[in-house]
Amino acid sequence: MGLFDSILGRSKPARPDLDQLFGLPSAAITLEASLGFRSTGTGSVAFRAPEGRAFADVQADVQALLDAGSGPKVDVQVDSFGYTWLVCRTDPPDLSALVTDLHAVNTTLEDSGFGTTLLCSLATFTDGTRTFGLVYLFKRGTFYPFAPAVATGTTIDGAAPQRRDNLLEIQLRDLLGDDLRLEPEISRWFAVWGAPGL
């Protein structure tokens, strides 16, 4: 943002960077070799659906695009923060195909002028007991791991406690540094509780 733009309050909307997504399959190989985590075959794209017809039409287009063709299954979920998640599933798990689907969703949104609404993409991995998600931040072009701790006990109101497995997250950061561009600022690693596939 230039000084004059700043004085006039014209912030440029942040544009998404989609290319880094294709680093996921090589990261998956590292993950399986080192820690035994495999892709669950589920991935999702979170975006902020703006009010209005224009976006409703685009959302319908995206769904039509993904429902047609080779027929990946697509679900729509809305989380408690008001973000919409489009969930893609591959069965048996096929990370390359999943990444292609996620990329298609993102490209459609961006080509329709809604690239600014993209929040993150998520691909989930599991080793049988633990599950974590690799979150891709579009505006930064970086990844970070989000690992919910395996729930033990309950909180005072009877719900399962929400705790992150920080140790695993840091371990993953150290492991994946060569394959993916990782988000250096930990304050940007927001939690995605209840995200699809976790």
Partner: peptide
């Protein structure tokens, strides 16, 4: 704290707009 719901809401907005939190 970082895990408060209000901070999470703010962090997502920062991520959407790509501004430091």
């Amino acid at each position: 704290p970082d895990d408060s719901r209000f901070v999470q809401m703010l962090t997502r907005l920062c991520s959407l707009g790509d501004v430091p939190r």
